[in-house]
């Protein structure tokens, strides 16, 4: 029973969140911060698979987010919104509520496939050379999207607000808050199952000694493909949620700066710590919001804070440990297994 406490707690939290958003207890601004937090949790936790657990150095995580955002946006606009290019909605609005998760997952699926762009070179290449491949992949994806006039090119793509409105027409609920919360939970859930299985721990073995891993019967290529596809797929889901939250996407929002943010969250939380990733995503989002009034100076202060943090706690907030390792009483409620 106690093992279920965490799940029950989360359900209560989600319901409370949805209810308070529904009855206007938290205003739109706070809602948007919470959604951003959720998206950031997915991003940092999913990048942690690669940069933390597997010990590779992927600097182009936003590329996969971009793929997921565009694919899901185009699909949902095609299905549920009027668009000068894509025409009238193909499906009745009431289906949008049912199909939105599917659309987001398709976005994630395509992003996962695009993750092969990085996974396959990783068979032969490691470390800094792979880092370049990921940076190049980031540039290639953005540049490709910007050159596709059909989907708006450099002007971006919009119409997702209509999709959210279609959901509202079914029932007036804070849909995006619900979807983002579910998405974040789903991602952390999947990642936890992956990294705590003997299968997924193969990634940690690759990190610590790839030669030994291969010789001890771990199919390193297979694990790499699985890890990269899971990571980029979840980034795609994050992109899908991000796009529908704002109702508008632009390739430049997925540039190398966004990838940098993802990396910062991973290293801030600690490589190979899932709870660290979640925690750092929350803290990082809050930090950015608190400092928002400073405008451009924010972007001087945030890096400075991080530089200082690296000096005093070079292993990140959590190192490679999980919350229960610090607070043993948590083990009663939450086992990392």
């Amino acid at each position: 029973m106690k093992q279920r406490t965490l799940t029950i707690g989360l359900v209560i939290l989600f319901v409370a969140l949805a209810v308070s958003a529904q009855f206007g207890l938290v205003d739109r601004y706070i809602q948007s911060v919470i959604m951003l937090m959720g998206v950031n949790i997915i991003l940092s936790a999913s990048l942690n698979i690669i940069n933390g657990y597997m010990g590779e150095f992927s600097c182009g995580h936003a590329a996969f987010m971009c793929v997921g955002a565009y694919v899901s946006s185009i699909l949902s606009v095609l299905l549920f919104a009027d668009n000068p290019f894509l025409g009238a909605p193909l499906l009745p609005a009431y289906l949008s509520v049912v199909l939105f998760p599917v659309v987001a997952l398709i976005g994630g699926g395509v992003a996962a496939v695009s993750g092969l762009l990085v996974a396959i070179p990783s068979f032969k290449t490691r470390g800094d050379y792979l880092a370049i491949i990921t940076i190049a992949a980031n540039y290639i994806v953005i540049s490709a999207v910007e050159n596709l006039e059909v989907i708006g090119g450099p002007r971006g793509f919009m119409g997702m607000k209509q999709v959210v409105r279609a959901m509202d027409s079914v029932a007036k609920l804070p849909w995006m808050v619900i979807w983002v919360a579910l998405g974040a939970w789903f991602s952390v859930f999947l990642i936890r199952r992956f990294v705590s299985s003997t299968y997924g721990k193969g990634a940690v073995a690759i990190n610590q000694d790839e030669v030994a891993a291969e010789i001890m019967s771990i199919n390193t290529n297979k694990i790499k493909v699985a890890a990269f596809m899971l990571s980029s797929g979840l980034a795609g889901v994050a992109g899908a949620l991000f796009a529908h939250q704002y109702g508008y996407v632009n390739a430049q929002s997925f540039n190398i700066l966004k990838s940098t943010e993802c990396m910062v969250m991973v290293y801030l939380g600690g490589m190979g710590s899932l709870s660290g990733s979640v925690l750092s995503a929350v803290l990082f989002t809050l930090l950015l919001e608190v400092l928002r009034p400073l405008q451009i100076i924010k972007w001087v202060i945030v890096p400075l804070i991080l530089i200082l943090l690296m000096q005093f706690r070079p292993e990140g907030i959590m190192g490679n440990r999980e919350l229960p390792d610090f607070f043993p009483w948590m083990r009663k409620f939450y086992r990392f297994k």
Partner: peptide
Amino acid sequence: LWYDMSVLDNIRLSQH
């Protein structure tokens, strides 16, 4: 060995 993993995990992982 995988130095930063428990001895138990070292053994378990070689059952891939």
